[in-house]
Design a protein around this nucleic acid. Structure first.
Length: 606
RNA sequence: GCCGACGUAGCUCAAUGGCAGAGCAGCGGUUUUGUAAACCGCCGGUUGUGGGUUCGAUUCCCUCCGUCGGCUCCA
């Protein structure tokens, strides 16, 4: 079955992705012990789950007699501070397996017992524990020397979490916290959380009038004119990139009978995520992916080896019945649009086509200032196909990465069960990592659809398929870039690219003239002719993050000029209108990353 | 789906088991202004939905809907 580039983990999960070799790990892990000790003081009957260090902090899972409240978190923090003051040493000791099991049973810690039971013999028959003060925990370590060595910390929030991530197991209460070496580091981290909250695309989407969500159609965005202008700019760019890669546009139906999904495997494996309906007594499904239908287009003719590669791009609507709890603004919607690309090619063309994909990914990301990182995801433990098949497939992807001189990491075991893939990541202005595109090599779907082409010697061969979506989905991409730019989109993307601000009513006619000149150059411009003071109009345009404000008053009318003020605060007076229009439209045409306050985005990165 | 939290005017937020308030936005008027908020006035609400407790519910309880934080980090 074919997957696609939108199979992505949530943003929050990315934030929490473990930094395994972070030097702060020991401190974070120690903090989780200190927190567990505090929780046990308050709830002696608490049962402990696990408490690892994670990226930017730590957590611990507990089974507790009642839900935790914000007040509980404060009480826990207080008791943690008391332990820091007491400066208990962390002491390691070891037990053999039977003793450890017996003691944990006696202590009434069934989850710990389960962990010890599951520890494989390779880990040795000796089980290690760490003790500080009155608290002891099963633990591999390492830890800081003593509780006094903990840096400044803060407990952040609580959440439900299934024991071992398994929905059939009990749900525990997880407490998330963060700890840092210095107060400045902690402050910086909290500032970043606050900044992320401020630039939340759900808030900016409303403030900038881009889109809305309504309970009448949960998790399906309603696009407003300004949001659509942004979308159009993104889509135009994406088609330009596709055309440069030799793609043709296709479009396929949304309502499709189950027979297609049976062939593709979705009916069996993906039906839970599909909107299923009866189309005149024919069981059907709204399409969650485009790939199977592209296969049908391929099959409308007997293809020749000369026809390949065949590059098809389909940007139609997709529908996915996501679990309600997984929905999150634009990051996870139920109706979405991918910039979806399918390349059908001969096996000997795979490397070149992967290379093309890598080139297009980098090309499409460039005007956003993103430098993508690549991971080659290799065969998972449970897989289809022989080792020879995997060696060849992984070899081709690696070869393409190397020949393109693309640095990459290997995500061992991260591939789909039927083929390896290349995952594309980017870091946003707040340093958050997002998985965007996935370039997926697929021999499975051509087989399911029995695709063939005529070879030079008159035989038949099966083509390979390459799937990728570069933005992933427009919806999610808009969510990501809205947060990345904090709503201050580069001029080429900005829904309103310029606002003309007449100082007094007598300047409105000239302002309209300026707007026409901008409009004739294809620039999205408006006149703010409200009876407000110029200062108020400037302020409103600033808050709407309009890249360019053109103030026009007597002097400008006189000189047929404009006085541009950029969103960054930069100001000029009396620029000839024609000169300004030419300058702005060339920046837009070149999709410059402009105007951007360099020091601002640098500050976010630090 | 599960755990927890939340839902008051378009937005941000108050308040109380006893007449639901403010700022901003909107509307009307005055002001005609040179780079981040002029001034005056007016309008604005079935307190998400349905039910229960109560003399009385926005407040307490339950249902449903929606939203948010999580649920993959393995001692």
């Amino acid at each position: 079955m074919a997957l696609d580039g939108d199979e992505v983990r949530s943003a929050a999960a990315e934030l929490l992705d473990a930094g395994a070799h972070d030097p702060l790990d020991a401190m974070r892990h120690s903090a989780s012990h200190v927190m567990a000790a505090a929780v046990l003081e308050l709830f002696p009957e608490a049962r402990l789950g696990i408490g690892p260090a994670i990226r930017d902090g730590f957590y611990y899972d507990f089974e507790l007699p009642r839900p935790l409240t914000a007040a509980d978190l404060e009480a826990i923090e207080e008791r943690m501070r008391a332990q820091v003051v007491a400066d208990h040493a962390f002491e390691r000791y070891e037990q053999d397996r039977p003793t450890a099991l017996a003691e944990l049973e006696a202590a009434g810690q069934p989850y710990k017992v389960e962990i010890v039971r599951d520890l494989s013999a390779e880990d040795g028959q000796v089980i290690s524990f760490y003790r500080h003060g009155a608290f002891t925990d099963l633990c591999r370590g390492p830890h800081v020397a003593s509780t006094g060595k903990l840096g400044p910390f803060k407990l952040l929030n609580t959440a439900g979490a299934y024991w071992r991530g398994d929905e059939t197991r009990p749900m525990l209460q997880r407490i998330y916290g963060t700890v840092w070496e210095t107060q400045a580091d902690l402050d910086q981290h909290l500032w970043r959380l606050e900044e992320a909250r401020k630039r939340d695309h759900r808030k900016l989407g409303r403030d900038l009038d881009l889109f809305s969500f309504h309970p009448e159609s949960p998790a399906a965005p309603f696009w407003h004119p300004k949001g659509m202008a942004l979308w159009r700019a993104l889509e135009d760019w994406s088609w330009e990139v596709r055309r440069s890669g030799g793609f043709d546009e296709v479009r396929t139906p949304a309502v499709v009978r189950k027979e297609l999904w049976e062939t593709s495997g979705h009916w069996e494996l993906y039906q839970d995520n599909m909107f299923v309906l009866d189309d005149s007594d024919h069981p059907s499904g709204l399409k969650p992916m485009n790939c199977p239908e592209s296969m049908l287009i391929y099959k409308t003719q007997l293809r020749s080896y000369r026809d390949l590669p065949m590059r098809l791009a389909d940007y139609s609507w997709l529908f996915r019945r996501e679990r309600t709890g997984a929905l999150a603004g634009m990051f996870r919607v139920r109706q979405l649009t991918q910039d979806d690309s399918h390349v059908l090619c001969r096996d000997d063309q795979v490397i070149d086509e992967v290379n093309l994909a890598l080139t297009l990914v980098r090309r499409q990301y460039a005007p956003f200032g993103f430098e993508p990182r690549f991971k080659l995801a290799t065969r998972p433990p449970k897989k289809l196909g022989t080792d020879e098949f995997w060696d060849a497939a992984e070899g081709k992807l690696a070869e393409a990465l190397k020949s393109g001189e693309v640095p990459y990491e290997v995500d061992a075991g991260g591939g789909a069960f039927y083929a390896p893939k290349i995952d594309v990541f980017l870091d946003d202005a707040l340093g958050r990592e997002w998985q965007m595109a996935t370039i997926q090599l697929d021999y499975q779907l051509p087989q399911r659809f029995d695709l063939e082409y005529r070879t030079a010697d008159g035989g038949f061969e099966r083509p390979a398929v390459l799937h990728y979506a570069i933005y992933g989905s427009f919806e999610r991409w808009i969510g990501v870039i809205t947060e990345h730019f904090a709503g201050a989109f580069p001029a080429w993307l900005a829904p309103v690219q310029a606002v003309v601000i007449p100082i007094a009513d007598r300047h409105v006619a000239y302002a309209e003239e300026v707007r026409s000149a901008l409009g004739a150059a294809g620039i999205r411009a408006e006149v703010d002719d409200r009876t407000e003071r110029m200062q108020a109009k400037v302020r409103d345009a600033q808050q709407q993050q309009v890249p360019v404000m053109l103030v026009v008053g007597d002097r400008d009318v006189e000189a047929r000029a404009v006085s541009p003020r950029l969103r960054t605060g930069e100001e000029r007076q009396g620029v000839p209108l024609a000169e300004f229009v030419a300058d702005l439209s060339s920046r837009i045409a070149a999709r410059e990353l402009w105007p951007v306050a360099a020091e601002e985005s640098a500050a976010y990165r630090s």
